[in-house]
Design a binder for these strands. Structure first.
Length: 489
RNA sequence: GGCCCCUUCAUCUAGCGGUUUAGGAUGCAGGAUUCUCAGUCCUGUCACACGGGUUCGAAUCCCGUAGGGGCUACCA
């Protein structure tokens, strides 16, 4: 039975890198009918904040990464039989294990204060615990009385081998690790102990995580061995870099997964893109994957060893692809909150009307938010015409006025306001005026929408409605007459 | 600094000793379609970090060099 986990520290929002790790763990579990566990590594009370806990869970939910076992979230109570799933609630367990190691002589009490150790560094200038308390006699320990102490792990001699599913076999000399602390003076566990104890007790079979943990893994393996537990399989994947090739800083927009939601990206696209950042399908040249597709094709063997840069442009392309892949009704529902957020009242429109809106915008949307630009004129009147377009399309106001009056007359007699019929009306007008369709459509688009670009013209006019169309034509004619007057002076 | 990992077009990558004039995608440039934009289709642009080996033969294996990243806390 495969059991994987994502173990974030709730000291910030859901980082894109954490999302990648979560996704890989989730995919691997789903692929193997295993269990995916969410565990919060909140042993550092200083840095933990409930709002981050909430943001992370919300982020996972948004991405579609659900957990089979994990702490309570919102209305959902704790799930799973290996809880609690917050390290802050498992302190006694860690202490028990630490003292077990202490009794077995695999760990020892260290009475050195942090300050007193500051001057001890290795040849290279790094702090390195010289082992002052490593061989204290029982009498010496009794002498210390109630002096505060930490528990340090007695790092054994020899070497530790990491057999990694992605990195291969990596050798580490134990001598490069000093006797690290496993239990702090205040009784809190340190990350390494907590991780190992949890992975043991939660019966984790596969630890998939960022390769920033690769050099921590020997410590973990030594602890597993000391605790007499068998090792999980390890898979260390490369980190996600920003567009400059550097570590994806938390301060950067986009580091927070929910930034993408706010920017109008689909969770499907984020998941697809992030999966591709360091993994390829065995199916060559395929890039479009839904979550079920990913479950079907995912394999650890095809994860790369080199770090990948984040590329917004490619994400945007993929996002457009996923938007176009959505059934129109689905797209409509996703567009509604965005429209509402911009103050457009969608409740006065029919479902059918809104579906048509989604349909005429669908192939033009790189992001959902773009709908605001493409369709704002359908919800509110505008006060200015796009300047450049006006200069280009309404170069000779007198002529345009003639066009507009002509088409306005014809439109006012149309009884079935439907795009195909409207097109015919325009075609007739063009024949009559002896101009090409574009020569009439483009200036009219500016009159109706205030812009030179937008959805298909006849479709847009259908949604605008007869009354608004006639009204905006009148407004444009009036505007052009005034303008013409000024130029004549 | 030490230890560990990485290095194919601008970017994500395929490639796992001969099938490679190194393939795909994004981007960029151009063309076609067209009521604008977009989409779609077509064409073009662009790479094996460097230096040594091994081999009949290397992007693929080995060793150096350079560059990038990670770890090096009573953070995780």
């Amino acid at each position: 039975m495969v059991r994987t986990r994502i173990a974030p520290s709730p000291s910030g929002f859901l980082h894109i890198g954490t999302a990648k790790t979560a996704l890989y763990n989730w995919l691997f579990a789903r692929k193997n009918n295993g269990t995916f566990i969410l565990r919060l590594e909140d042993t550092d009370a200083e840095r933990t904040d409930e709002q981050y806990v909430h943001g992370m869970c919300e982020g996972f939910k948004w991405l579609g990464i659900d957990w089979d076992e994990g702490p309570p979230f919102g209305d959902v109570p704790e799930k799973g039989n290996y809880g609690p799933y917050r390290q802050s609630q498992r302190k006694e367990l860690y202490q028990k294990m630490a003292y077990q190691l202490l009794e077995q002589g695999k760990a020892y009490k260290c009475f050195c204060s942090k300050e007193s150790l500051e001057s001890y560094k290795d040849e290279t200038g790094n702090l390195y615990y010289p082992g002052f308390c490593r061989n204290l006699t029982p009498d010496q320990i009794i002498e210390k009385g109630n002096a505060p102490y930490v528990i340090r792990f007695r790092v054994p001699e020899g070497e530790t081998i990491v057999n990694d599913l992605i990195q291969g076999t990596v050798y580490f000399k134990n001598s490069q690790y000093d006797d690290f602390i496993i239990l702090r003076a205040n009784g809190d566990p340190v990350f390494h102990l907590a991780v190992v104890v949890d992975d043991i007790t939660m019966k984790i079979t596969h630890v998939i995580r960022g390769d920033d943990h690769l050099t921590n893994t020997p410590r973990h393996i030594m602890l597993f061995n000391a605790l007499g537990a068998s090792l999980p399989h390890y898979a260390h994947h490369p980190l996600v870099h920003d567009e400059q090739g550097r570590k994806f800083s938390k301060r950067l927009h986009g580091a927070n997964v929910l930034d993408w939601r706010d920017d109008g990206y689909l969770p499907e696209a984020i998941v697809n893109y992030v999966a591709l950042l360091g993994w390829t399908s065995e199916e060559e040249n395929r890039e479009f994957f839904t979550l079920p597709d990913l479950i079907e094709h995912f394999s650890i063997e095809r994860i790369n060893k080199s770090a990948a840069r984040f590329d917004r442009k490619k994400l945007e392309w993929l996002n457009g692809l996923h938007i176009r892949n959505l059934p129109v009704e689905n797209l409509r529902e996703r567009l509604l909150p965005i429209l509402e957020k911009h103050g457009f009242n969608t409740s006065v429109k029919t479902k059918d009307w809104l579906s048509k809106l989604a349909q005429i915008c669908q192939e033009k949307l790189p992001t959902l938010n773009r709908v605001v630009f493409l369709a704002d004129f359908l919800f509110k009147d505008f006060d200015i015409y796009e300047t450049e377009a006006e200069a280009k399309l309404w170069k000779s106001p007198e002529t345009i006025i003639i066009y507009f009056k002509n088409i306005q007359d014809k439109l006012s007699t149309v009884s079935t306001w439907q795009h195909d019929l409207l097109k015919t009306v325009f075609e007739n007008a063009c024949t009559e005026l002896n101009i090409k369709l574009g020569a009439l459509v483009n200036p009219t688009r500016l009159a109706l929408t205030g812009k030179s670009i937008g959805p298909g013209f006849f479709e847009l006019m259908e949604l605008l409605g007869k009354e608004k169309t006639i009204e905006r034509l009148s407004r444009a004619i009036e505007y052009l007459q005034n303008k013409g007057g000024i130029t004549r002076e």
